[in-house]
């Protein structure tokens, strides 16, 4: 069984916004990946960005700088 870690999650209003996030994070060498949105956030399906918790500040700065469309920000043990 894998070890659970506390992660920083970003949810989006559309798949398109998730794709934009992935592209910007990759370009900026920001770690993380797209995963299915955990049920604790919404059972409504969709993608979210999952990153190590220590990246939180860097990602929040990125979201503001790039004016990315975001639904919500969460920390969660996954």
């Amino acid at each position: 069984m894998r070890t659970r870690q506390e992660r920083f999650l970003v949810t989006f209003p559309s798949t398109t916004a998730a794709m934009a996030m992935e592209g910007i994070c990759r370009a900026g060498d920001v770690p993380g990946r797209l995963i299915p949105v955990p049920r604790a956030i919404t059972a409504g399906c969709g993608l979210c960005w999952s990153a190590p918790l220590e990246e939180r500040q860097r990602i929040e700065d990125l979201l503001i700088r790039e004016r990315l469309d975001v639904d919500g920000l969460y920390t969660m043990w996954l």
Partner: peptide
């Protein structure tokens, strides 16, 4: 179907979805 907001009865408002 949009892949997001499955339990909403309305079409998501954000473009392009």
């Amino acid at each position: 179907g949009t892949g997001v907001q499955s339990f909403s009865e309305r079409q998501p408002a954000a473009y392009p979805t």
